[in-house]
Design a protein around this nucleic acid. Structure first.
Length: 423
RNA sequence: GGACAGGUGGCCGAGUGGUUUAAGGCGCACGCCUGGAAAGCGUGUGGUGGGGCAACUCACUCGCGGGUUCGAAUCCCGCCCUGUCCGCCA
């Protein structure tokens, strides 16, 4: 969320940011509306506060007179009139504030200057690692997975519906291995604090990280309780310190959590949905970082490298893509996608999104730090990245490490967790 | 789910309609004192929003949201959270 001040102080910057995202046509009228509402709101505030000051003074005078045994009926009458005016103005103010907040909650973040303008076609591959294996003779993961008895899509669909997966035997163990391997690396080598968090969260948390209000239709919800299944651990983990002022000496700091992730993927049906490519429930280890504004860029690079290091240890060829403004998520200021090569399906699969949000989430979630004793609190910067999402990593392993006989070599780093060298 | 008790500043804690416009204490910061420190003494000490170049000033803020009143931490209603007991339970 932006500071409302952006309307009166930097509206051109805001317009330009929306243009870079290719959203200006849709959002220009919204921005104009925000500008007008901010003006209106401040003028009402002045009117109402003027009257409140008068009422406060009058009430004190009433108290003084009563104590002195004097008559105060005239003041009580004028106070009543003031009260009526105040009530009316406050109703107007509340309406205008709700409208302004709705607008602010619906505006995407500004992207950083190094983010390319435009849509998906302007995404930029900034580095590649490893030799992509040629696709010749490599079967897609869903064939190999079913063949090896480690993937059971049929029964997943029976139990829950399409897009829900059953892993069996070594497939189930592989999921457990990835969870432990990823978390162990982040905790032991990258300095993250391991956290285990709820996967059902309230509306305030979902709003804090900017899934709500705009993307409510994409979320699984428990309507009776007004609770939501998390689409990513980003939500509960970033919200750990919602409405708090964190100790500046702890920054930068990182948290890592495993959670299942639930996504309705409304409207995505039919597109790259076979096998493990796009499912409604999947598992992921997520890194979340808090830092100061000054540390933001450096932290974004660090976070992204933490995710890349996992792919390198797994020996899976990948590329890092800097997303163009129009392809960058709603709340992000800059986002790198990590895409792993899957020779069986012949595609680069997104296995991690590493984003920096600036203070966009922190303002919504009210997460602050005090730079130094006696100074005003400032919003932290928040970052998060998958480290990593399991299903597509599993797909890449089943394809990249596929043997001619249909078995699959287990990446060396996973062998201590798997107790086997081959699937 | 039911019953009861609670929720006041960084922390403790007083406060049942008007010098409480939140006492007092702890902590913290600064100053005095000291060779240096402790103790002691003094001063200061939250957040949000509005106005102002600024000094400053106004409003709001006692879990949250409404209501009553000229005036609410205080009275009324709803909700949330915490604790204890009961019920249920991996």
């Amino acid at each position: 969320m932006h500071d409302a001040r952006i309307f009166r102080e930097q509206v051109e910057l805001l317009r330009d940011g929306m243009r870079r995202r290719q959203k200006l046509d849709a959002l220009a009228p919204v921005i104009d509306c925000g500008l007008a509402l901010d003006l209106e709101r401040r003028s009402i505030i002045q009117a109402v506060e003027e009257r409140k000051a008068a009422r406060n003074a009058s009430s004190q005078e009433v108290a003084r007179r009563k104590k002195a045994g004097e008559d105060a009926d005239d003041l009580i009458a004028s106070g009543r009139a003031l009260g009526e005016q105040i009530q009316k103005l406050e109703e107007e103010l509340a309406a205008s504030e709700v409208e302004l907040r709705d607008i602010l909650l619906g505006l995407p973040n500004l992207t950083l200057p190094d983010v390319p303008e435009g849509g998906e076609e302007a995404n930029r591959i900034v580095r590649t690692w490893g030799e992509p294996r040629p696709s010749d003779g490599v079967k897609p993961h869903w064939e190999i997975g079913e063949q090896l008895g480690i993937l059971d899509l049929q029964r997943g669909a029976k139990i829950s519906g399409s897009g829900f997966i059953v892993f069996r035997g070594l497939g189930a163990r592989l999921t457990r291995a990835l969870m432990n391997f990823f978390i162990d690396v982040h905790v032991r080598e990258h300095g993250y604090e391991e956290v285990w968090v709820p996967v059902v969260v309230n509306r305030a948390s979902m709003t804090g990280t900017s899934q709500l209000p705009k993307f409510e239709d994409d979320m699984y919800a428990l309507k009776e309780e007004d609770l939501f299944l998390v689409p990513t651990a980003e939500v509960p983990v970033t919200n750990l310190y919602r409405d708090e002022i964190v100790d500046a000496s702890t920054l930068p700091r990182g948290f890592v959590a495993y959670t299942p992730c639930f996504r309705r993927e409304a409207g995505a049906a039919g597109k790259d949905t076979r096998g493990l490519l796009r499912v409604h429930e999947f598992d992921k280890v997520e890194m979340v970082r808090y830092c100061t504004p000054e540390q933001g860029d450096e932290e974004h690079e660090r976070l992204t490298k933490h995710a890349e290091s996992l792919l390198e240890r797994l020996g899976l060829p990948y590329r890092r893509v800097l997303l163009a403004a129009g392809d960058t998520g709603f709340g992000a200021a800059r986002c790198y996608d990590l895409e792993v090569w899957a020779p069986g399906v012949g595609k680069w699969l997104e296995v991690s999104s590493c984003s920096t949000f600036g203070d966009f989430q922190a303002r919504r979630a009210n997460i602050r730090y005090r730079p130094a004793q006696g100074e005003k609190p400032r919003f932290v910067h928040t970052l998060n990245g998958s480290g990593l999402a399991f299903p597509r990593v599993i797909a890449a392993i089943l394809e990249h490490y596929q043997l001619e006989d249909g078995h699959v070599t287990v990446p060396e780093v996973l062998r201590p967790y798997m107790a086997t060298e081959v699937l």
